[in-house]
Nucleic acid binder design. Sequence first.
DNA 1: CTGAAAGCGCTTACAG
DNA 2: CTGAAAGCGCTTACAG
Lengths: 355, 355
Amino acid sequence: MERSDKKITIKDIAQLAGVSVGTVDRVIHNRGEVSEKTKQKVRKITEMLNFQPDVLASALASKKNVRFAILMPSANGEGTFWKYPMLGIDKALLEIEHYGVLYKKYLFSVSDKNTFIEQAEKAMMDHPDGLIMAPSFKKEATEIAELCAQRKIPVVLFNSSIDNQDHICYVGQDAFQSGLLAGKLMDYGSSENGEILIVSLMSLLQNNQYILARKQGFLHYFENKNERNLRLISLEIDGLDVGAIYHELRKAFSENPTIKGIFVTNSRVFQVARFLEAEKKTKVNLIGYDLTSENKPCLEKNMISFLINQQPLEQGYRAVNALFNKLVLKKEVPKEILIPIDIVTKENLKYYEEY
Amino acid sequence: MERSDKKITIKDIAQLAGVSVGTVDRVIHNRGEVSEKTKQKVRKITEMLNFQPDVLASALASKKNVRFAILMPSANGEGTFWKYPMLGIDKALLEIEHYGVLYKKYLFSVSDKNTFIEQAEKAMMDHPDGLIMAPSFKKEATEIAELCAQRKIPVVLFNSSIDNQDHICYVGQDAFQSGLLAGKLMDYGSSENGEILIVSLMSLLQNNQYILARKQGFLHYFENKNERNLRLISLEIDGLDVGAIYHELRKAFSENPTIKGIFVTNSRVFQVARFLEAEKKTKVNLIGYDLTSENKPCLEKNMISFLINQQPLEQGYRAVNALFNKLVLKKEVPKEILIPIDIVTKENLKYYEEY
DNA sequence: CTGAAAGCGCTTACAG
DNA sequence: CTGAAAGCGCTTACAG
């Protein structure tokens, strides 16, 4: 049976270098208190033998705990989206428990910036070894990331990113590209000439940068290729009141009698689906985002043609994993982990649900 | 910072039961040589405290190795498909190296049944602790699975399955459902009446059960719903000769002047794409399987509309992981791990590639 | 600056 | 049937 190589240990290194294992450990972890000369000697040998310390033994011997702070929206806020990254985070946390990873969650409300600031401050007060953050409020999140950079606390961002580069890793989706993909799907399914509605249902407070990017991606697709000569119409509806939404949609339909498809730039697509069902407009192609519990039944009933999935569970899982790799395994972590843009239909939904 | 609970160790158990740690270890692992009475006593305490042995420490202390046999097609056979599961397998293997997992690969040729038999026999001779197998040849694979069941060697299947239930886990895709999905995509993109071609490019020797299931799924979609009244035409082409394939396709096009789309039931879809390109039939929707190096450029050039991805890398990764969970972590393993049926287009290709 | 020793939580001969 | 002890590979005070 294969294995990369005969296992070589810290003891072997010590012997070869003519020093004690304690000294070897000191140079491996740069803990100082070693003369330059012996340091070089040990370095050389570890490199020649390509020595890799046993992480299991290391975790076992070390009583040191590493503490993760997790700053993200509460799962029981508006919409059910945030429970999924939470599940992924918990799954990852459970797996690495034995490595001495402790954590604390700091949950804020996406509709209240003050709760973000509050929780962020709490997190910083606890002096974690690393921070995992969903930067829902750009400006404030950027400040936190800067502060962490100063304090040498590695930050992993997920779901959305921020512009400055104080984080070690971003886990999420390319919003522009997902819009582009939605454009392709809309185009592919539109046989005849007609209007395409782009609906943005915004809650004002929410970070809308990636909502905007999705829309731009969608528009961009048709800038390059619009053989069917579809007319794109933007519709922005503020607030979450169903009455207002229906009113606006009704108006759009009366103004544009040949609407062929609707692209909704976020997970509130189910509201448009319900409108279409109520108004018996079943021929309209509807594309939106996220496998939420509101959206899934609409997909199953064919009221929604496609949902774009951003694998929220996987995002949470990978964010924890990235920080774990950095802090515990001391592995290199990529600057960006781009999650696939899944196209979900009635026919392949169940596999993404289970996953 | 949170943690499930204060860590409770084998030593605590021993103390509470008034026995030595050695004895506790014996009952935990059912190694016998313990009186019924003390066994019960220890059992009770471990259960009450919900004691979970530390897998890291366990792996470290145990010099026992666990040996995986991996029986699968060689990556450098026809087509490039098999290198992906191999990559996933290697990735998983690397991660669990420290747990004392040894392995040996037994590679056969998908076009030569004898190599399968040969390699399978070799694997069995080596008496592995577990087997990971791609059961490309049903009958022979079934026999191997039976033999393993007799010998209490757990078997994990991936990519395709077999009917008898001698394996502990199957990792793969639901072929019928993927065909159904292809049907939906074809239907969604077909505006007008016309013909849809279902092309099966078969190498005779290859296991074609799941090829068939894909086709049946595709047909099934239109049985339930064929509003556009598309005519489905089956085309089976044996052998892999490009000339013969082109000839058959040309014939199909001359017999059916209004072909709107083609569904190719396996990864050889690029051959049809090249045909369409050569014949300048760019309006035909083309759907097929797998992100192989031949298919990807066709997708990028829009010669293929959709590729269905079966995440071969992930399949390999998860197959190894399932066996690891069973054999090393002693965790429960699901009977079936169904991999998502990814829809890949030019626009989201790159995320599936990196992944 | 360096080494010897104890210990992390579990496993494994060995002795009784 | 049971316990005491050594050891897995690494880390961490402690003494010098």
